[in-house]
Amino acid sequence: MVEGDKAQPAMNDGTRQVLEAIRRDHPDWQPEVTRWGEVQLRVGREDLQAVARALRDDHGFNYCPSETVVDYVKEGRFELDVRLFNLDTGAKLVLKSDLPRDDATCPTLAGVWATCKWHEREIWDMFGVRFEGHPDLRRVFLSESFQGYPLRKDFVDARKPRPRLVRQR
C-alpha cells in the first residue's frame, strides 16, 4: 500500500510541508506516505497521546473527522485508525496504532480532540476497546445490557434467528 516517494504527486502542499516538518523535528517517528497522498504515522499505543498532542499543537492538526478500529482477527490485533486534517492548510495525516486483541485497551484521545469522546464511545460499543482515562465511556448505540461487541469478527449472535418467510441464501 505504501509506495514511498513515488506517490508524491497526489500530495497537496500542506501535507508536503507537514512531512518535511515531521522528518525534521521528529526523526524517530518514521512517517510514510500512502498512495492517496496522506502522511501515515504508526505509533505504539503508549506514545499515542504524546504524538497526538504534538500533532495538534505543533503541526496544526485541529480537526479529527474519523477515528475507528479494524479487527484483524487472524493477526490477533486491532488497528486504531485516526484521520486528521488541518483545516487551514489542508494537510492530511493518518495515525495508526496496533492494539493487541487480548489486551484491548488504549489511552484516550478525548483530551486532545473533543470529538474523539464520541468516536471512542462508538468503538467501545462496537469493538470493546477500553479507552483509559475516557471521561464518559458508555455504550452509545446498544443498551448497556447487550452482551458482546458486534463488530468483532469473532462475534456470535446468541439470539434465536428470526423466522424468514423466504429461504435464506
Binding site: M1, W36, T68, V70, R83, V94
Partner: peptide, 20 residues
C-alpha cells in the same frame, strides 16, 4: 487489498467512508 478513506461534502457536512 488495501484501505481508503473517501469523503464528500454531504448536505450535513463531511461524510467519510473508510473501506478496508
Amino acid at each position: 487489498p488495501g484501505e481508503v478513506y473517501a469523503r464528500v461534502e454531504g448536505p450535513r457536512g463531511e461524510l467519510g467512508c473508510y473501506v478496508v
